[in-house]
Design a binder for these strands. Structure first.
Lengths: 241, 241
DNA sequence: GATTTTTCATTTGTCAGACATTTAATTGTC
DNA sequence: GACAATTAAATGTCTGACAAATGAAAAATC
């Protein structure tokens, strides 16, 4: 593709080779890679170069290393949490670095979130509805800082997407919700805007409870529109300063 | 200074420190990091350790390095393509390593994909509709291998999500579609199943053309159900073997 | 004989120093 | 002023060494 290999860059090449072995199933979860010395021999490079390659893979949570006899590099079992954390880091950076308008990011986030409404209304559990009501209670406390309000907001929406009872969907949606947090943290929430948001959160829970998909989607759409106006007022205030 | 954990792991610690500097905005896109020798001095470690830390960051596309005088490590501008490639790798591995049923993965994928239908019907362009029709033509060629058919399928769905005209949404959805490719590649597409899929693709394009959201969603729902039956027949065939 | 302790080999983590290669700025030459 | 050679700075790679961790085998002890 874009790898011209004018300068081979041995450690990157070796990392790519091992990554392919893992992604394409030639190395399975738990498998032990050859020792650094053996890998160096096999690829005809020094141990330092092999180590750089292994560190690249470790940064992607593809391998984990253990010290000592019978230690070494092992193909890592990628958990949902690790995967979500990685996805959130990448997405956060993407949003932060690309001069994306708050409106575009918000539109994407809520479009994605609406993809769970039908399944969530069908499968919501009492436990998750309880969790959502708990977060609503927390958000009603006026002494909450803006950061804490945002964090509770994230927890509320994560419970919402978990209602769909599909962990793959939860992974994708939770990652996109988390990635928005730095942008949301720019907003100063007044008592009035908090009340408005909490009302909409209540509408979402009530809608899920009644398995009323349409009302959940309406509440989410209203929430999206309201969040965008809040974001725009922040930008306007900044420009006018 | 020295944060002593159980096992310090210097290169990981240094990578974390620099990563925070980037994610939290103390280092901006394009900024040059100190040279490896300077970083080694600053952190009181050897150059090899610094290099391992930098390779970890490079693996996450957070930095890029340039050789020569006035070269060095620079904070990388994370592009949509890089971010999507990373997300797809992570998601693919997650799906491959967690004994996820084909049905659950498929359900998540199509739930996500439906999140673009309303925007796509509103904003679809002639160019993207043309691209989709082009892929449909390709898919109608019976001499196509299963892998090539899958690749064209991915291209078709990427054009579909691009219709929404929201690059953030495209990034998330394209990543999730790509992540499914290894699972889709397990399926052997008969002439009959290919015809069925192509028909549904045509229905999607026609629906977008007429800005008929409901018909696009119906076609996607049918495609989801059909894909799941195809996947299940593969699993059944395997079990019976 | 069973249990505890010691030794030992293996492997990763880190360091120091060296040389090769790349690259842009500088200098020298015409 | 244009072009070629030099130089300095930086990454890329190699070599060899030692430290630290760790499980297994061997030895010592009861």
């Amino acid at each position: 593709m874009k790898n011209q290999t004018a300068t081979p860059n041995l450690s990157a090449t070796i990392a790519d080779a091992i990554r392919s072995d893992i992604v394409e199933g030639r190395l399975l979860v738990g498998d032990r890679l050859p020792s650094e010395a053996e890998l160096a021999d096999q690829h005809g490079v020094s141990r330092a170069t092999v180590r750089e390659a292994l560190k690249r893979l470790a940064a992607q949570s593809l391998i984990r290393t253990e010290r000592g006899a019978f230690g070494g590099a092992f193909v890592n079992h990628l958990s949902y949490d690790e995967a979500r954390a990685q996805q959130a880091t990448t997405s956060t950076l993407l949003l932060g670095m690309n001069a994306i308008s708050f409106q575009v990011a918000c539109e994407a986030r809520y479009a994605l979130e609406r993809s769970c409404t039908a399944l969530a209304a069908e499968r919501r559990t009492a436990a998750l509805l309880g969790k959502m009501r708990e977060e609503i209670d927390r958000q009603s406390d006026p002494s909450l800082t803006d950061e804490a309000f945002c964090a509770s907001d994230v927890a509320f929406h994560r419970a919402l997407v978990d209602c769909a009872g599909n962990e793959v969907l939860s992974y994708h949606l939770a990652g996109s919700v988390e990635a928005m947090q730095p942008l949301m943290n720019m907003i100063t929430f007044t008592a009035r805007s908090r009340a408005e948001i909490v009302d909409l959160h209540r509408a979402i829970v009530a809608g899920l409870d009644r398995r009323d998909v349409a009302s959940v989607e309406r509440a989410l759409a209203t929430l999206e529109a309201y969040t965008i106006t809040l974001g725009q007022s922040v930008l306007k205030a900044r420009a006018g300063r």
